[in-house]
Design a protein around this nucleic acid. Structure first.
Lengths: 222, 222
DNA sequence: CCTGAGACATTTGTATACAATAATGTCCTA
DNA sequence: TAGGACATTATTGTATACAAATGTCTCAGG
């Protein structure tokens, strides 16, 4: 599944995450093939992968649609993330190498730099954030946990609203990361687990609040 | 992915679970296609699904192999199952309909009948057990939780050793199910969660004990 | 106006051929 | 004999054609 298949996967995935393909919309293989510039074979491959990511659903008659996330689904996903990423943080704290700890520190440093621009660099924040969390997952050393979490971390609704976070919210996130680092430095699994769970659930409520007031979403960042 | 694809999936899956395809063995698409009596296309489909079930792994160069489960992997999987199925039991208890409760009772009744044969009907036990747990998952009403757990419930090593459970072990399992039913009947989520977590972890240790002494596995049941 | 049967269009499933890539073996050189 | 470049073989990736299934529309009959 090298070039064409990955291309189809990335293309379709980003079209879903960006909202270019609307939630609930049907995904016809041939149309996607044309848009991606490949044949149907790699597109089918990509749809399978996206289905296991839960970004795509299939009817009983094998038609594919962009997954439609209800508010309950989002809450559900965050709750599970809190449990599983808490678990990951605990394991990570208990078995973290000094080198891994340094990489995690470095990731949060990049986050700090992204935040303290004249206008916060949200893209940079998201990159750093992804690195931060994936380093922890790596340190946890459980392939299974990684596999389970991979289906929970990418959520279209969240992705699309990330740009609306205020600088204050970004700073709060940074501070929680610092606290996590302190827990890791002390190899305190229980502490790390508690902070991580809180971190995820706070993020959920930030998302949730933003969606109670905002019915229209301004695509401009900042 | 109707007939041929499902057939390939079921065939390969059962060959893996039964041990006919040895752990670590390579899975060449064409060879599998021939054994399944279909072309490579549905086989590739099946391999993808099996990969997301973690029954198959792929190298960085896209060669497929039967997943090789280390003891740590098994422990890991059981631990996650305990957490997630505990969660499912809690949610189920909190929102269970009377009808669902009845179906769960019925499943455990089938288990009782399977156990109390002259020689215990292990196949019947496994069927009832699967129904019991999947009814709970259904009642929990979280598609995400179901999706996550589906990758954890089928484990080749466990599957292959199920036939070695003593009648006593089967009865213990039945009794724990009865206790779960009591928790459901009272809609006590915390109780249900605790029992379920214990139930899964006990099953893990039963498996683990069986594998400390047994290096050779007798295929005969009973 | 509703309903259902049937023709037609659309979409997905499978087989096959060929291209691209990875693994393996061979032979030459140092 | 060890090691490396090259040829050979095996395996996977992609495109395409066609088969099967599903969805849609029309129109007759009530």
């Amino acid at each position: 599944m090298s070039r064409a298949s990955n291309r189809a996967y990335e293309t379709i995935r980003s079209m879903i995450l960006s909202g270019e393909l609307p939630a609930g919309g049907q995904l016809a293989e041939e149309a996607l093939a044309e848009r991606c510039g490949v044949s149907r074979t790699p597109v089918r491959d990509a749809l399978r992968r996206l289905e296991s990511d839960l970004l795509v659903t299939r009817t009983d008659t094998q038609r594919s649609f962009v997954a439609d996330w209800s508010l309950d689904d989002v809450a559900d996903a965050f709750e599970l993330r809190a449990i599983l990423e808490g678990r990951a943080a605990k394991r990570a704290a208990e078995r973290m190498s000094d080198a891994a700890l340094e990489r995690i520190r470095a990731a949060n440093l990049r986050i700090a730099q992204a935040i303290h621009q004249p206008t916060p660099d949200v893209g940079g924040f998201l990159d750093g954030n992804r690195d931060f969390h994936s380093e922890i997952l790596e340190a946890a050393g459980s392939r299974r946990l990684s596999a389970l979490l991979s289906t929970l971390i990418e959520q279209p609704v969240v992705w699309r609203t990330a740009h609306h976070y205020s600088r204050e919210a970004l700073v709060r996130s940074y501070n929680e990361h610092e606290e996590l680092i302190a827990a890791f430095a002390r190899r305190d699994g229980a502490w790390a687990e508690a902070i991580m769970a809180g971190h995820i659930l706070r993020a959920y409520h930030a998302y949730s609040d933003a969606h109670n007031g905002l019915t229209h979403l301004d695509p401009a960042r900042g």
